[in-house]
Each structure stands twice: as structure tokens, then as C-alpha cells.
Amino acid sequence: ISTPTHWSKLDPKTMKVNDLRKELESRALSSKGLKSQLIARLTKQLKVEE
């Protein structure tokens, strides 16, 4: 399991699906679903981290 990238360095809308999945997995979140779902899930988590 990798260390999550700091929230300020991430822009989920421009990330590739593989990168989105890695970030979600490093935060112990589900990495299953469509790209739009991955973006929404990661965006929501990054707002919590701010």
C-alpha cells in the first residue's frame, strides 16, 4: 500500500483511472466503479482532508 499523495497536489478530474485507483486504495477507499464515480469519491475525500 502506497502513501496517499497530499490533497493539494491532486486534481482528480485530470487524473488517469489507474492513478485514481491508486490514490483511493492508499486511502482505504473502494477503487471499483466508473471513472466518474472514482473522481467523485476521491474529490469528496480530498475535501475532508483539506
Rank of each mutant, 00 (worst) to 15 (best):
I1S: 04
I1R: 04
I1E: 05
I1T: 08
I1M: 09
I1D: 02
S2A: 11
S2V: 14
S2K: 15
S2G: 13
S2M: 15
S2Y: 15
S2W: 10
S2P: 07
T3H: 05
T3A: 07
T3E: 13
T3R: 10
T3I: 09
T3N: 12
T3L: 12
P4I: 13
P4S: 15
P4A: 15
P4D: 10
P4T: 12
P4R: 15
P4V: 12
T5R: 10
T5L: 08
T5S: 14
T5E: 10
T5W: 03
T5N: 04
T5P: 04
H6F: 12
H6K: 13
W7G: 07
W7H: 14
W7Q: 05
W7M: 09
S8C: 13
S8P: 03
S8W: 05
S8A: 10
S8E: 13
S8Q: 04
S8K: 11
S8I: 04
K9R: 13
K9P: 03
K9W: 06
K9C: 06
K9Y: 08
L10H: 02
L10M: 09
L10V: 06
L10T: 03
L10R: 03
L10P: 03
L10K: 03
D11C: 15
D11F: 09
D11G: 05
D11T: 15
D11K: 15
P12H: 01
P12S: 02
P12D: 00
P12R: 01
P12Q: 02
K13M: 13
K13G: 06
K13S: 08
K13Y: 06
K13C: 05
T14W: 04
T14P: 01
T14G: 12
T14A: 12
T14R: 15
T14V: 12
T14M: 13
T14Y: 11
M15S: 02
M15H: 00
M15D: 01
M15N: 00
M15C: 03
M15F: 00
M15E: 00
M15W: 00
M15G: 00
K16P: 08
K16S: 13
K16F: 07
K16W: 04
K16V: 06
K16M: 06
K16C: 12
V17Y: 11
V17N: 15
V17D: 09
V17C: 15
V17E: 15
V17M: 14
V17P: 07
V17H: 08
V17T: 11
V17K: 13
N18D: 12
N18W: 12
N18G: 13
N18K: 15
N18H: 14
N18P: 14
N18T: 15
D19C: 12
D19R: 10
D19M: 14
D19T: 12
L20C: 04
L20D: 02
L20K: 01
L20W: 01
L20N: 00
R21W: 03
R21K: 09
R21E: 03
R21Q: 06
R21I: 13
R21V: 09
R21L: 06
R21N: 04
R21F: 04
K22P: 03
K22N: 10
K22E: 06
K22C: 08
K22Q: 08
K22I: 11
K22A: 08
E23T: 02
E23M: 00
E23W: 02
E23K: 00
E23A: 04
E23Q: 06
L24V: 02
L24H: 02
L24P: 01
L24G: 00
L24T: 02
L24F: 01
E25W: 05
E25A: 04
E25F: 03
E25N: 03
E25S: 03
E25M: 10
S26Q: 13
S26D: 14
S26L: 15
S26C: 15
S26I: 13
S26K: 15
R27F: 00
R27P: 01
R27M: 03
R27C: 01
R27K: 01
R27D: 02
R27E: 01
A28H: 09
A28F: 13
A28Y: 15
A28D: 15
A28L: 14
A28M: 14
A28V: 12
A28I: 14
A28K: 15
L29F: 09
L29V: 04
L29K: 06
L29T: 05
L29Q: 07
L29N: 03
S30Y: 08
S30A: 11
S30C: 14
S30D: 13
S30I: 07
S30T: 12
S30V: 12
S31I: 14
S31G: 13
S31H: 13
K32C: 07
K32G: 09
K32Q: 10
K32S: 08
K32D: 10
K32R: 10
K32Y: 08
K32E: 10
G33T: 00
G33R: 00
G33E: 01
G33P: 00
L34Y: 12
L34E: 09
L34R: 14
L34K: 15
L34N: 08
L34A: 09
L34C: 10
L34D: 11
K35N: 06
K35T: 05
K35S: 05
K35H: 14
S36H: 07
S36A: 09
S36Q: 09
S36R: 09
S36C: 09
S36W: 09
Q37C: 12
Q37P: 06
Q37A: 13
Q37H: 04
Q37M: 12
Q37K: 09
Q37V: 13
Q37S: 11
L38E: 04
L38Y: 01
L38K: 05
L38N: 02
L38P: 02
L38F: 01
L38R: 03
I39V: 13
I39N: 05
I39F: 03
I39G: 05
I39S: 07
I39W: 03
A40L: 10
A40T: 09
A40V: 09
A40K: 04
A40D: 11
A40M: 14
A40Y: 15
R41C: 03
R41W: 01
R41L: 05
R41K: 07
R41N: 06
R41F: 01
L42M: 07
L42K: 02
L42C: 01
L42E: 03
L42Y: 01
T43C: 11
T43I: 11
T43L: 12
T43H: 10
T43P: 02
T43K: 15
T43Y: 05
K44Y: 06
K44D: 08
K44P: 02
K44I: 05
K44G: 06
Q45T: 10
Q45R: 13
Q45F: 06
Q45G: 04
Q45D: 03
Q45Y: 07
Q45I: 07
L46V: 06
L46E: 01
L46G: 01
L46S: 02
L46Y: 03
L46D: 02
L46A: 03
L46T: 04
K47T: 09
K47R: 10
K47V: 07
K47I: 07
K47Q: 07
V48W: 07
V48C: 09
V48S: 11
V48F: 13
E49F: 01
E49D: 04
E49V: 00
E49M: 00
E49K: 00
E49H: 01
E49Y: 00
E50M: 02
E50G: 06
E50I: 14
E50V: 06
